[in-house]
Design a protein around this nucleic acid. Structure first.
Lengths: 122, 122
DNA sequence: CAGAATCCTTCTGGATACTG
DNA sequence: CAGTATCCAGAAGGATTCTG
């Protein structure tokens, strides 16, 4: 009916002013942390991403990638080839999250994932 | 029937290894960013929190506070008074998020909330 | 290969009424 | 005041099928 693809519309019920909530709304959501983490250091194709993020459906992966793209954090490069090739990478705005991502990585490793203190020292 | 209160059970479907996802699972969720942001600098009571976070239902506020408490990020101090008084504050573990929270705050203010560049300079 | 379309289940969150 | 309990709407996410 409509000539425009309209995935599920985004949640807009949060933050209402708090920049922390606003930021978390952008980088929260299934797989987004992992996606940003991966793309921080490399460009990656769709299927490669899905294989790396074991357990995410391609529908959701597509959705998350689109949302990150709409937020201006990632760049989607489509190559006119057969079979098609699409490569995802971080934009400058996405790279501006580097410090935060790395700190979240450190904090999560030390405080959430049950890893022995010795391991992080090694 | 059960003698134990069991709110909705937490999502456990994410992170599967990525510490960034793991961390976001902890501090994501409605109001948690705002709650952490507020408690970073002050102790606050339940009703006061709800009034500050305009728009959150007390059921959800209770749930988020419990989850943050279970994660060891906030402390819940109950005073044996009538009417009851309960004060929430950050634990040391919660305070360990300070840098991240502040950076998320800065990033969200500059990149998500539509604020003119001039304003942040003033 | 990289999705789009459809259907369905689960989870999140709100509204309201009630209580120690 | 600080929750609980119950009910309900909507959003998030999965599984499957199909296509340029």
């Amino acid at each position: 009916m409509s000539d425009k693809i309209v995935y599920e519309k985004q949640a807009d019920y949060t933050h209402r002013g708090c920049p922390v909530e606003a930021a978390l709304d952008i980088i929260g959501g299934k797989g987004k942390g992992s996606i940003l983490c991966i793309l921080l250091d490399q460009t990656m194709r769709f299927n490669e991403l899905q294989r790396t993020l074991t357990g995410i459906s391609q529908r959701i992966l597509t959705k998350q990638l689109r949302e990150l793209e709409d937020a201006g954090l990632i760049h989607r490069e489509v190559y006119a080839e057969v079979p098609p090739r699409v490569e995802y990478s971080l934009t400058d705005k996405g790279q501006s999250l580097r410090t935060i991502i790395m700190e979240l990585h450190k904090w999560g490793r030390e405080n959430v994932l049950d890893q022995t203190p010795q391991e992080k020292a090694s």
